[in-house]
Simulated assay, not measured.
Amino acid sequence: MVNVTFKQEPVTLVGNELKVGDQAPDFKVLTNDLEEKSLADYKGKIKLISVVPSVDTGVCSIQTNRFNAEAQKLENVHVLTVSMDLPFAQKRWREVNNVESLELLSDHRDADFGEKYGVLIKELRLLARSIFVVDSSDKVTYVEYVPEVSDHPDYDKALEAAKQAE
């Protein structure tokens, strides 16, 4: 069981904790154009999945911009950012921040990703900050559930795990 806090207060995560070696669960999310996407849409690709509560907040914005910049340097790695933001808000944020190297995906409709990856915060209906690296055969090769939602993830470890994945 993962222990996560939000503003130093414990929160309840819905779903099961993923571990390295697990088969990545399929999920359904929405693109900024309201198209449904699933894990199967990235079949055969390495995925770095950056999970944030809302791109409109400071740490989330920094995290998403950092992975956008790093995505250009990663070979054969598809970078996804998932949040509970509405697709329209993600699209606006993406345009304002000139984010073009990663895909912003919304879990607002069903919280399907949040439940399947064990990152849905029950009390807030937000996603807990986390990083998942999933290899080309959809095995989880790296997991970080950030203990305090307002803290940054370990960018360097996540990027190194993405580079090592096959």
Rank of each mutant, 00 (worst) to 15 (best):
E103K: 09
G21Q: 06
E144L: 15
V143G: 06
G58A: 09
K7Y: 04
K73N: 13
L80Q: 10
L127N: 10
V11L: 09
K19H: 15
P153I: 06
L105E: 13
P87R: 08
G15S: 10
G58E: 06
D156R: 01
Y155A: 11
D41C: 12
L126H: 03
P87Y: 08
L30F: 00
S83I: 05
K28I: 09
S83T: 07
E166M: 10
K163W: 12
C60K: 01
L13E: 01
E75Y: 05
S136G: 10
V149Y: 05
E75F: 05
Q63G: 04
K28Y: 07
S50Y: 02
Y117W: 15
V77R: 04
T12F: 03
I121D: 00
L127Y: 05
V82I: 11
F132S: 10
N76H: 09
L30T: 00
K122N: 02
T81M: 11
D135Y: 14
S136Q: 15
D107N: 03
V143A: 09
Y142S: 07
E160I: 11
L18W: 12
G58M: 04
V134Q: 05
L48F: 14
Q8Y: 03
E17A: 15
F88E: 00
Q23P: 00
A111N: 12
Y155W: 11
G114E: 02
E144V: 14
K47I: 13
S50K: 00
V20Y: 06
L34G: 04
V96R: 09
A162T: 02
V29F: 08
E75Q: 09
D56E: 06
A158C: 08
L30C: 00
T64Q: 15
N76F: 03
D41L: 13
R92N: 02
A69I: 08
